[in-house]
């Protein structure tokens, strides 16, 4: 294993830390998804998690995003342990600090693009209704979707849906965006649009983005890469 496991690549304070993170699926023959993963990720980092299929990339992402609980080890967010948190507390952290983008857009099909983005805002309740509308409109406009505000997911192209998903992940101005193969189902033009969107977020909003990807060309354009093989870190290095 090589690389930057102890310090965030940009040298700033640790936003996210994985300590000996292990996830084993209980079964007749237990399946190890992630084993002894250690790293720290700082603010405004753009990190690629790569590896072959079944190497535990998505499982690691779900652990980092508090969607799943580790079998051993722990995840620290801003230095705070999360192992003993209730599922409601973990949900609150996801709401306030983490945004997800999945391979498939995972937008709520009955709601328009604007409504999909406003739902997490309404849940958090930081902004009043008018500000929520303004903020959601601005997010979509920043991603070039100002003409599609009132369209439902079914009325959007794959790239547009994925950009709406990115906008939704940004809705509550999270510190961390976790993207699981965000361009996996897109053509090259849409892939470029989504990638640029994520890159802009890191540069302009100082939000940390961790993206799982199969696409080595895309991974090569990210400043840091964590490569997994069989659930373990093969290397973690700045590029």
């Amino acid at each position: 294993m090589t690389g930057a496991a102890d310090q965030p690549a940009n040298g700033s304070g640790s936003l996210l830390e994985a300590r000996n993170l292990t996830r084993i699926l209980p079964a007749v023959v237990p399946v190890t998804l992630v084993r002894d993963v250690d790293f720290k990720i700082g603010e405004a980092e753009f990190v690629a998690i790569t590896g072959p299929s079944g190497s535990g990339k998505s499982s690691l992402l779900y652990l980092l995003g508090l969607l799943d609980r580790p079998t051993a080890g722990e995840v620290l967010i801003e230095g705070n342990k999360t192992a003993d948190l209730s599922s409601a507390d973990m949900a609150q952290i996801r709401l306030e600090k983490i945004g997800f983008v999945f391979q498939f857009h995972f937008l709520l099909p009955e709601f328009t693009a604007l409504e999909n983005i406003m739902i997490p805002m309404q849940k958090l309740g930081r902004l009043n209704a008018r500000d929520q509308l303004e903020h959601a409109t601005r997010l979509l406009s920043d991603l070039g979707l100002e003409d599609f505000l009132h369209r439902r997911p079914a009325q959007l192209s794959g790239g547009q849906r994925q950009r709406v998903a990115v906008a939704r992940a940004l809705a509550n101005a999270p510190d961390l965006i976790l993207a699981d193969e965000p361009t996996g189902s897109l053509d090259s033009a849409a892939t470029e649009q989504v990638f640029e969107s994520l890159q802009t977020i890191v540069e302009t909003q100082k939000t940390t983005v961790i993206a799982v990807t199969h696409d080595m060309d895309l991974a090569a354009r990210m400043p840091r890469r964590i490569h997994l093989v069989d659930g373990r870190i093969d290397y973690d290095r700045a590029q």
Binding site: A88, F100, F102, F106
Partner: peptide, 13 residues
Amino acid sequence: RDIAILKSLGFPE
């Protein structure tokens, strides 16, 4: 799937 989305967005059980 919507339930998974809502949970990932931070909606508690």
